[in-house]
Simulated assay, not measured.
Amino acid sequence: MPTGAEIREALHAGRKVFSTAAIAPSTYWPQFIKETGIDFVFIDTEHVPLSRETVAWMCRTYDALGVPPVVRIPCNDLYEASKVLDGGARGVIGPYLETVEQARAIVGAARWRPLKGRRLEEALDDASVLEPELRAYLEKRNADTLCIANIESVAAIENLAEIARTPGLDAVLIGPHDLSCSLGIPEQYDHARFDEAVQTIFRVAREAGIGAGIHYWESVEREIEWAQAGGNLIMHSSDITMMKQTLANDMARLRKALS
């Protein structure tokens, strides 16, 4: 399994990185997830009702197995990001991020934790103001921490060139459902305007030297097409979605065969 630092380097270099979302907090799950060969696991606390303690247990378990856990926090806040990192996360995903200020909030936690307040603002403005010993300590301490921004709206696309240049940001990840709603074409993922938006996001992100991807679950073929169009963060489906799809297909076959 790659380290967080190796995943970060791959994202910036344009090499493919593979992940999936894990919702189930079962102690059986992490070993099975590891055996799929993914590079890191995505744990969501924006839409999924997981407590801070449960998320910490999940993070520690995945990390112990060598699968870096990356947590989507409920809002773009330095302290929310710091909480999951303190709990064992190896990275954060900022949800519905639309501004540079929001990007700086999650970057501050990912790159310069545990600095806060004025010292953090100074480091975000110009890292050279930090004492050499402190800067070396913080860079080493946070080298494995991934920092990813969810791009899910028209406003985010309008500000993306500036967001993508935020020092310390590793990748952008499209949230397709929210993006399709923001575009006025809810869940129409084959719509030309949606495809244009995806490819624009990929292009702008890659021009800025950060990774780009989309969290998708409806079609592997579509994921391959988008990856070939420039996406290098392949966030495929989730445990609950794949279980539902497989079980539904198997039950349909059984009912047909045994009716």
Rank of each mutant, 00 (worst) to 15 (best):
Ala227Cys: 15
Asp190Glu: 15
Asn159Met: 08
Arg118His: 14
His191Val: 10
Thr166Val: 11
Asp178Leu: 00
Pro74Ser: 03
Thr241Ile: 15
Asp126Leu: 07
Pro2Arg: 14
Val70Gly: 02
Asn232Pro: 04
Ile33Tyr: 12
Gly211Asp: 12
Leu124Asp: 11
Glu221Ile: 09
Glu101Met: 08
Ala248Cys: 03
Pro2Met: 13
Gly175Cys: 01
Pro95Leu: 00
Arg104Pro: 04
Gly117His: 01
Met242Ser: 15
Ile33Pro: 07
Ala136Ile: 12
Val129Leu: 00
Val172Gly: 06
His236Phe: 11
Gly14Val: 07
Glu46Val: 10
Ile185Glu: 06
His191Ile: 10
Ile33Glu: 13
Gly117Asn: 00
Ile33Cys: 10
Thr61Arg: 11
Arg222Trp: 01
Ala208Asn: 02
Leu146Lys: 07
Ser26Thr: 08
Thr166Lys: 02
Val92Phe: 04
Trp57Pro: 00
Glu152Trp: 14
His215Glu: 02
Tyr28Lys: 13
Ser259Ile: 05
Pro114Ile: 01
Val71Asp: 04
Ala13Glu: 14
Asp86Thr: 10
Ala13Cys: 11
Pro2Val: 12
Ala24Pro: 11
Glu131Cys: 02
Arg52Trp: 05
Ile163Val: 12
Leu50Tyr: 08
Gln31Val: 12
Arg60Leu: 07
Ala227Thr: 15
Asp39Ser: 02
Phe18Pro: 00
Arg203Ala: 12
Pro30Gln: 06
Asn150Gly: 09
Leu173His: 12
Tyr79Cys: 10
Asp178Lys: 00
Ala252Pro: 01
Arg206Leu: 07
Tyr216Val: 07
Gly213Ala: 07
Phe40Val: 05
Ile210Ser: 04
Arg60Ala: 03
Glu9Val: 07
Ala110Lys: 13
Glu133Phe: 13
Leu233Pro: 15
Ile148Asp: 11
Pro25Gln: 06
Ser219Phe: 08
Tyr28Cys: 10
Met251Trp: 01
Phe32Glu: 07
Lys16Asp: 13
Ile93Glu: 06
Trp226Leu: 15
Pro176Arg: 05
Ala197Met: 10
Leu85Ser: 01
Ser259Gly: 14
Ala21Val: 15
Asp190Gly: 15
Lys16Thr: 14
Asn150Lys: 06
Pro95Asp: 02
Ile240Ala: 11
Asp250Ser: 02
Ala81His: 11
Ser128Thr: 15
Glu98Lys: 09
Val198Gln: 11
Glu53Ser: 05
Ile224Val: 11
Val220Trp: 12
His177Leu: 09
Gly211Leu: 13
Glu158Tyr: 02
Val41Tyr: 07
Trp112Ser: 15
Lys140Gln: 14
Pro186Lys: 06
Ser153Phe: 01
Gln228Thr: 01
Ala64Ile: 01
Arg119His: 08
Pro132Ser: 05
Asp126Glu: 09
Ala24Thr: 15
Glu225Trp: 03
Val67Asp: 04
Leu247Thr: 14
Arg165Ala: 07
Gly184Phe: 07
Arg72Ala: 01
Pro167Arg: 06
Val100Gln: 09
Glu53Gln: 05
Ala64Lys: 00
Arg135Trp: 05
Ala56Trp: 03
Leu146Gln: 09
Ala64His: 02
Asp170Ser: 06
Phe32His: 08
Ile151Pro: 03
Arg104Asp: 06
Gly94Val: 04
Val84Asn: 05
Pro68Ile: 09
Met235Arg: 12
Glu122Tyr: 04
Lys34Ile: 06
Gln245Asp: 13
Gln31Trp: 08
Thr99Val: 02
Leu50Arg: 08
Gly230Cys: 04
Lys116Pro: 00
Phe18Cys: 08
Pro69Cys: 03
Asp39Trp: 02
